[in-house]
């Protein structure tokens, strides 16, 4: 379980998160909605211990992010918005191997896991390709493979569909849903209401670093969307 207890965070003097408290259960599919600058990305960076709160605590399965960031990062993977910026190695299979190398796995085990994950995402044929030669959608899948191969319990998708065409968008949404059905907790960050139509169970709306809605999708009203400045999108 992810427990966020009254966290606040500032960039310099500018507050980005103000007293956020939240619980995310295992197996949930939650969407974090909000406009640019609402604090979405700052919040998810706290989940992975990339940022530590100025006040309050974040704990993943009982481990405080301030205490063991390495352990935390094995539990929570993040697929960032732009795959271009998160692929470290030039060759697909070598990039997917990056996280497993950090975990200190044996070469043979790494090889096995890479093949398994590339097969799962139907991109085994790209294993030896240079990532610079891939399409944006393919890069997104490689970035996801690099996270999935580490077998995290929770995966955060930071606006994964923003730059994708409709076909790739649908593919990513289907993959997220399938992963959720396998028991992986999905946290989808988006500012696009269309992304939440089908698969999402729980919605969290942020505005100016505060939670203005946290509940089931069916309880989301026009008034709340208006308050968040998202009505009509």
């Amino acid at each position: 379980m992810i427990e966020i207890n009254n966290i606040s965070y500032k960039y310099g003097d500018k507050p980005a998160l103000r007293g956020i408290s939240l619980k995310i259960n295992e197996g949930d599919f939650i969407t974090v909605l909000g406009h640019n600058g609402s604090g979405k990305t700052t919040l998810i960076k706290h989940l992975n211990a990339l940022l530590l709160p100025d006040k309050g605590d974040v704990s993943i399965d009982g481990i405080n992010t301030k205490k063991d960031s390495w352990e935390i990062r094995q539990k929570i993977g993040i697929v960032f918005q732009n795959p271009e910026d998160q692929l470290i190695n030039s060759i697909v299979e070598e990039d997917v191997a990056f996280g497993l190398e950090n975990l200190g796995l044996k070469s043979e085990d790494i090889q096995k896991k890479i093949i398994e994950i590339l097969c799962k995402l139907n991109i085994l044929h790209l294993a030896k390709e240079n990532v610079n030669n891939l399409s944006f959608g393919q890069k997104q899948l490689v970035a996801l493979a690099g996270v999935l191969v580490m077998k995290p319990k929770y995966i955060v998708f930071d606006e994964p569909t923003t730059a994708l065409d409709p076909k790739n968008k649908l593919n990513i949404m289907k993959i997220m849903s399938a992963l959720n059905k396998e028991g992986i907790t999905i946290i989808l960050v988006t500012n696009n209401l269309n992304d939440i139509k089908k698969y999402v169970k729980t919605i969290l709306i942020l505005k100016d670093g505060k939670i203005i809605f946290n509940g089931k999708k069916k309880k989301l009203s026009k008034d709340i969307l208006k308050k968040a400045g998202m009505y009509g999108e």
């Binding site: 990339l50 993040i78 996280g99």
Partner: peptide, 9 residues
């Protein structure tokens, strides 16, 4: 950030 989140050390 991407490297850190994939347990770089």
């Amino acid at each position: 950030d991407a490297m850190e989140s994939r347990c770089y050390r």
